[in-house]
Design a protein around this nucleic acid. Structure first.
Length: 309
DNA sequence: AAGGACTCCAACCGCTTGAAT
DNA sequence: GATTCAAGCGGTTGGAGTCCT
């Protein structure tokens, strides 16, 4: 037999969390640390399943979470990363440590997707004459939320929507603040809280650079088939030392999954670039790229955002 | 002022992966 | 090796708040 169930489903409470429940959960985690969620409902008396407790913690109560409006910089990074990684919200969130994947996903679905769609409508003509500027918009990750082609938008179209925080959000924020002292004394730093640590000496963007070069070679916006992009990402995971299936991380195998010229390029990446990657500077290539003035200007241009660098 | 439409986001659902037994 | 479940993830939903007519 396998493990015992985390909790019986009978009598499990659903719906919004109350401040009292939050305090109970936070107090428990403050004492025992996050993890072993199976024991949380039992030990706290909360009528929530372990999954609900974990989600509440990771998406709302965890210290260091920034709430409220996204800055233009964050917005630009999300657009960049979404274009590169697709709807890999957890991966995107790892580059925005103060934001949760849920937040980013919601922000994308409620703000950015619409903005891009709006920006794109009626302006496709202009795009046709300028294919490289918008290459970052053209990825091939599964279904795209927005069309790969887009163009300039007026700043009025793209003005940030001002949102006010709810009273309860503020109280939850206060709960989080209570934990700041505990956070500082805790030796554990998760990748979520410290993505740079995970990226140190690694090169997510060696493949991204490859991707950019590749798109540059296209005459217009090019949609890369999802399997190909996945291959690149898997390869990238391998070089990053991230957990991944050994066989799927085999460089040669990855290369062989892509045919023709693509295979050649991936082989180039695998065999020619890898030794170089192992001696990378601490700041990852991706971070450099994300902070790259030129690249970010592209985002700003499309989104009508003010210059942030 | 009313109520219908729209927006936003916390929370849930369902799937996949990997660990525990 | 098979089974079971925890953890993690992306997609979706429900409902409270806001906007519009």
């Amino acid at each position: 037999m396998g493990r015992p169930p985390c909790c019986d489903k009978v009598g499990i409470k659903k719906g919004p969390w109350t401040p009292e429940e939050d305090i109970i959960l936070v107090s428990y985690i403050q004492e025992h640390g996050p993890g072993n969620w199976r024991l949380v409902p039992t030990n706290t008396g909360l009528l929530r399943c372990s999954k609900s407790c974990r989600l509440r913690w990771t998406n709302y109560l965890r210290p260091g979470i920034k709430r409220g409006n996204f800055t233009p910089h964050e917005e630009g990074m999300i657009i960049h990363l979404q274009a590169l990684l697709g709807n890999k919200w957890a991966a995107i969130a790892s580059y925005l440590p103060q934001r949760t994947d849920n937040d980013i996903k919601n922000y994308w679905n409620t703000h950015l997707k619409k903005k891009i769609k709006k920006a794109q409508s009626g302006l496709d003509t202009q795009l046709a004459s300028d294919s490289t500027t918008y290459r970052f918009m053209s990825t091939g990750c599964n279904e795209r939320d927005v069309d790969s082609s887009t163009s300039h938008a007026s700043s009025s179209d793209l003005r940030l929507i001002e949102n006010s925080n709810s009273i309860y959000a503020s109280s939850a924020e206060n709960i989080s603040r209570l934990l700041e002292g505990w956070m500082k004394s805790s030796p554990k730093i998760s990748p979520q809280n410290n993505p740079t640590a995970e990226c140190e000496g690694t090169t997510t963007a060696e493949s991204l650079h490859f991707y950019r070069l590749r798109v540059d070679q296209q005459e217009g916006s090019k949609v890369i088939p999802s399997d190909e992009f996945e291959s690149i990402l898997s390869f990238d995971q391998n070089i990053n030392g991230l957990p991944c299936d050994k066989s799927s991380c085999d460089s040669s195998q990855k290369g062989s999954e892509i045919s023709g010229n693509d295979e050649e390029k991936v082989n180039f990446m695998v065999h020619e670039q890898k030794p170089k990657m192992e001696n990378n500077p601490p700041l990852s290539f991706l971070e450099n790229w994300l902070l790259d003035e030129t690249a970010n200007h592209e985002v700003e241009e499309v989104m009508g955002l003010p210059s942030i660098f």
